[in-house]
Amino acid sequence: MELLQSDKRTLAIAANLLYRYGGSTIHVQMVEYDLFHLLVSIDDECNTRYGVVVAESNILASDAYKNYLDVLNKRVYTRDNPDNVPILLVIVDTIFESARIGVQLGWCSAFTPIVYNPITLKQMDNDWCEKLYTLVKAMNSTITMLSSEYLSIQKTIDLNGIHNNGFRFSGVILYARTIIPHIPQLTAKTKKQFEEDTTKYIYSPKFENDELDNEILECTRLKFANVADVNQRNDKMLFTSSDVQDLQFFGKELGGYNKFRIKYSLLPTIDINGENWQQYITPISLHNMTLCIREPYNKQWAHTFDHQVFTSNVNLGEWVKYSELLNKKSESMIDLFDYII
């Protein structure tokens, strides 16, 4: 590859890491192409393929990388061209033989290219590589059903307000709830239940909020009281690869927003004055939520979530049972942070 040069050891380290975290069904080969060094083929139902451009750690600030992005941006992508594969950037640390990886060129609806600049890079590990695989697979023109653990309902809470400096700001809180708990192996009985539940959700016109969703909405209203209007959007089901693609596209629209993982801590209502009773009760922690919000809300401000405790309407007598219920329900929350790249 002429645009970004990499020595063979760097390529071999990248290939080794791709094999390590890519599972037993991938095949990595070196290719003679100007946009990427390695072509990864995955032996799955839609024959997923993606290109990998490999570089060393100092590349992001270099002219060569800017030139590469220029080429990606100016390139004419024609429909149905087999060359149209997603491209991932792998930045290799040759000393520690580790790497960071992210999507450099993505595809929406298999025809519209998206060049990610700035790119979201994360340390290569099983978790991140699995998420990237889901994203890359979603870019394929073949629509496939997501695996059962990812079948979920996307919950979106919109924030619109005016900051005290007079500027309008907007934000969004995102999370997803799995439809069914993770089933390692479907038996005849669970399979039937699974099909019934899935069918019910697909044809359901609206997904009802449960106690957990209501608490999250209420906490959001308290957090942004007198600052922003808080409204919940219609829920959306994450069912196929194209739904993940939509989510990815939504993430692209939120490009200028600051992105944080947030959590809410909940305590019961207690009518005791003057006592420091809070220290005797373990708050319920609701996490796996992603907040995308415009300036002036930044990273420092996001830490206010870590120390703030909200009070639920549930009183102390019912708290033990209620916390058990919410803790169990919170297991069904899926973190969408990594899909908003």
Partner: peptide, 17 residues
């Protein structure tokens, strides 16, 4: 052939590194 060759390719990459 991918599955058959994947192990060999991976081994070659490890050996190279």
């Amino acid at each position: 052939t991918i599955n058959k060759n994947a192990l060999g390719s991976r081994g070659e990459a490890i050996a190279y590194v």
